[in-house]
Amino acid sequence: MWAYIARRVLLSIPIMIGITALIFLISHSLPGGPLAMYLNLPTITHAQIEHLTIQFGLNKPLWMQYVSWLGKALHGDFGRSFVDGRPVLAVIGDRVPATLELMVTALIISYLLAFVLGVVSATRQYSAFDYTMTVLSYAGMAMPVFWLGIILILVFSVDLHWLPTFGMVTPGVPYSFLDNVKHLILPVITLVVYTLAQESRYVRSSMLEVMQQDYIRTARAKGAPERRVLYRHALRNALLPVITVMMLDFAFLISGALITETVFAWPGMGRLFFDSLQDGNYPVVVGMAVLVSLAVVVVNILTDIIYAVVDPRIQYS
């Protein structure tokens, strides 16, 4: 067991290094170069550009830039934003609460719904309900998220005037919880539709798999009531794979919902990444991509370990 965990952690080291190197390399081969946001100023002079190049360490070979970046990053220093000179971690940190608010709300709602819908679908496989759910969830996945967002805005804001369109709170008025919630509704619906489509299918599959296991058949054969079989035996066992998969979602949570945040002008981390890329704000782009990817790796390891501990069927060699 411990050997398995150790192996798993060791394996992740080259992956983490690979991730940082890959992101660093791609980011630095972006056209415009790291100074693009300065070069487009008509007033910039040759001398200023040279000075900035030295100030940001861009005059050194790429591998040296990478090594020095990695060295600092290991100490928690991801550099400073090119835009405002603030530390990258502080810039990212500013966006965390907004992203958490949106994502946690959306994920909780979609998990709860996913369990109910998925379990019902599985227990009534091939019923009209199951059939409808299948089509709906595939439709949910076929929908470009930004289009769904725009349609929701069209209907609920532009036409019906029921809900605010953009942002986290109404600009210019004192904060109120109700106002915040109103702003949450449309982006959360957008995210839930998309997430739910996948999660409910996943719950359904997992339930179906468990229900074909021998121990369920045994339970049934022994005459246990169907209800008991379903909820005592099947659901409990089906939960495990579902939960591990859902854990992965939390890793992606940090990246925020880039598209949804953009459509609804939600000031979260996804939008920060997009804006930074547009501005050519390299330190923030690299910092965010690396941090989020590393979080994915860490959650993966945790998931595997938990899975290995809990599920005796998995052999760890």
């Binding site: 805005i153 953009f166 942002g167 109404t170 953009t262 000031p267």
Partner: peptide, 15 residues
């Protein structure tokens, strides 16, 4: 308000 559509609706709402 980092979005033109948002600015427009904020103006419409009188905010």
């Amino acid at each position: 308000i980092p979005d033109q559509n948002t600015l427009l609706s904020a103006l419409q709402a009188g905010n």
